Amino acid sequence: MAEIILEGVTKRFPDGALAVKDVDLDIADGEFVILVGPSGCGKSTTLNMIAGLEDITEGTLRIGDRVVNDLAPKERDVAMVFQSYALYPHMNVRENMGFPLRLAKVDKVTINTKVEEAAEVLDLTEHLDRKPANLSGGQRQRVAMGRAIVRDPKAFLMDEPLSNLDAKLRVQMRTQISRLQRRLGTTTVYVTHDQTEAMTLGDRVVVMRQGLVQQIGTPAELYDFPRNIFVAGFIGSPAMNFLNATLEDGALRTALGDLPLDDRTRQSLERQNAPREVIVGLRPEAFEDVALSHDGDHAGPVFIATVEVLESLGSDVYVYFTAEGGPATTTELEELATDSGMRDTGADAHHIVVRLDAATRAREGEPVELRVHMAKAHVFDPATGANLTHPVGAA
């Protein structure tokens, strides 16, 4: 095991394209760090530079106590698990898992011991004599992970290892990977496009956009204190709702009506010299069905919306309605809409989604009275994307 330190790491391709710029990241020994972001943001390139599969244009990379910029991949003592299982079809599970040790000319007794130990950890013992064609997708991925484990590397590097699995298997494998990493305590860097994976797996998450690190923090820090509008829109499912707003007389004037500012938010906006025209972000859980309010809980402005779509998930209900005046638009929000596929599907970005208690009596086509909890509101500068309510953010 070892810490991994990136200092000003930059990747520029021969044609001049800048893939990654000035990444500073200190990954502690035994830590599980996730690199997440939209397609083309530089996360896989960063991982490949750690692995030695991409040259570093500028900056310094340390694994343990060594600078490894000029070391070949095999000299870095890291193991990669890719999206593709890359198993040899003519070899059984035992042979596939032991193959890297055979290449390293490790004796047969040691190979067999290490393979059986890894198989026990991965619940593959009864499959050791089977060929990959006779395994499920989840089992194949575990074999690929076992091949990395037997090497006992300083670090695991995983590049979207679950993307070939169906939704149910992904959830199961996510849990297994988390348990495995905790059990082995091996430093792990994991790349994913799926923010749900990022939020559930990592000790810390690195959000990237266009080759730049946007924010580094625990999943809770990114969710509660997003540094900018991009992080706020990328993290969270369903995504945060964004509305154009005007600051006037201690309130945010929006398509939902006037939303009075609480003292903390007002003071923060004053300190940041907030512009008059801003964007307000409200997560789905920032809303409440007034009919279900507890006695004495009357804090927050109330408005009426007509329910257009209602989705019942058993424990929660998602209600969709249209905000007048159109959605907030910035370069970051347009990029997020394109990455999520909203533009391709023709989805209506005017829709606001709120998460309500399952006891709600809201019905499609009928009005529902909703309250906004302003303590959960975020206010952004449209010009810079900066979060004006939580300017410091977690880093």
Rank of each mutant, 00 (worst) to 15 (best):
E221L: 02
I279T: 10
E285G: 00
F234M: 07
G250W: 02
A286H: 13
F380D: 00
H351E: 07
D316C: 05
H390K: 06
G365K: 05
T45S: 09
V317R: 00
P301F: 09
D22W: 00
L336F: 13
A239Q: 13
G325A: 02
A349T: 11
R363M: 01
A104P: 03
A395N: 06
A155Y: 04
V206Q: 08
R204H: 03
Y320K: 10
L101N: 10
R266Y: 04
T389N: 13
H351V: 03
E160F: 02
R227M: 15
T57V: 07
T322N: 08
H351Q: 14
P219D: 12
M342K: 10
N164T: 04
A51E: 05
A274D: 01
I177F: 09
L71C: 01
T306W: 13
P89L: 12
M1Q: 09
L180Q: 13
T10Q: 01
L247V: 06
D152Y: 02
D15L: 14
A286N: 11
G30K: 04
S44G: 07
P100S: 07
A245N: 05
E116D: 12
F380C: 00
A239R: 14
K131W: 00
T192V: 13
G59Y: 00
A144Q: 12
A337V: 03
A245C: 08
R102C: 09
R264Y: 13
V67P: 10
F156A: 08
F230G: 02
A17P: 00
A104H: 04
A198C: 12
R264P: 06
E311I: 10
L370V: 11
T200R: 09
N228F: 07
K114I: 05
V354K: 07
I63A: 08
M80I: 11
R363P: 00
M80T: 10
D77P: 04
R94E: 14
R140T: 06
Q214K: 11
N228T: 01
V307D: 10
I352T: 01
D249G: 11
A198T: 13
A2N: 04
R355C: 07
L122F: 08
E58P: 01
D22H: 08
F380V: 05
A198K: 12
V213I: 10
L292E: 13
A274G: 01
A79S: 15
A167C: 06
V81H: 00
S84Q: 15
N69K: 03
R147V: 04
I111Y: 05
H390G: 01
A337K: 03
L128D: 08
M49A: 08
V20M: 06
S312R: 10
K43C: 08
M240G: 03
F13T: 07
V372A: 02
E95N: 06
Q172D: 13
A359W: 04
D344S: 09
V191H: 12
S84R: 09
S163M: 02
D123K: 14
T246Q: 13
L201V: 13
M240Y: 02
M158H: 04
